[in-house]
Design a protein around this nucleic acid. Sequence first.
DNA 1: AAGTCGGGGCC
DNA 2: GGCCCAGACTT
Length: 387
Amino acid sequence: MSEALIKHFAKKLIAWHGLDGRRGLPWQSVRDPYAVWVSEIMLQQTQVATVLERYPRFMKRFPTVNKLAAAPLDDVLAEWAGLGYYTRARNLHACANQVIKEFGGNFPRDPILLEQLKGIGRSTAGAIAAFAFHERAPILDANVKRILARLFGIEGAIQEKSVNDQLWLLAQELLPKSPTDMPVYTQALMDFGATWCTSRKPVCMSGTKKCPFAKACQANLSDQVLLLPRKPIKAKSPEFDCDMLLLRHGNSVLLQKRPEKAIWGGLWSLPESVWRAKEKNLASHSEKAKVNLTAKELFKLVLPNQKTLTTLKASEPIKPGSEIKHVFTHRRLWMQIWHVSSSSATPFSGADFKWVSLHQLGKYGLPQPIKVLLQGLSLTRDDDLKN
DNA sequence: AAGTCGGGGCC
DNA sequence: GGCCCAGACTT
């Protein structure tokens, strides 16, 4: 029963793709390993709809692996801004340089070698090898895990190594015999998981479409489709708050480069205080403390190693501006924005500070909520006349 | 094996 | 609001 399924799976899936697969995605029409690689990295944990807009833009700006490798990391991060998981952008840049130095500018076709490159794990290596080189290498992303767990009724917790190993073995076993089928097969797997064997509303539960595997799928036969694959219970993400300084001189704002190994690593943001655990039951505590904050106190919070600006009235209380809530995968953050005007664009010591015109924000990689905040600022009339 | 990394679409 | 996603990497 299971053997018949394994034997005919690839053919049936490719046949399904011929009728109901996704078409016209910009990265489907390319076989240039560089173009394939960029699309695979960009699509990691990122929706197709999002990548649809950003992929052509990225390829236009960095059309070859040489152009990408030669570009400043800051430019790559700026282009990546808004996509999240910024380690991907750093690894992308590092990987481009690896490909040039270690492989003469050409991506290797062996998935074992691909996996040794920065930011390329086993699944992405398999996808690149399959799409760009027709290698018989499996992928195992969330789509494939879900499909296999359901088809074969795998009930073990998905995070366990033994279960993961079992899934990889299955993925390998199911590959089509012919290498020339690898691109369409791999695409079909992703499409089937993304559009038919979905997490919440699989077509087998709706009744309007007929799943080609309905009669063989263990989860379907035992009415366990929505229960597989089993996932771990996630703890509630902790909450934090912090203060951020929006220091403005005319149409320029002070930006600070964030450390690489952190949230929003390597992006340009506003100077911020350390994150404090949010005290839920003392909602009034932080509010009260904020109302009478002076410029001097604020600067000590967000720029502890800098001298207070002489151009400010240090002891004058400043009023809190907007508070922004931002949800990450593992944290929730409340950012208290403090608007302060400076009579001059006083330089700060250190290369991680920069005064940036509001007109030039697009050239910098900013965290999405900060970008939205700064874009919402109104320009002063003086600069409006100038520009 | 668990934690760390964003952001948007969807329900 | 929680869940989900073309995962990789560190601890």
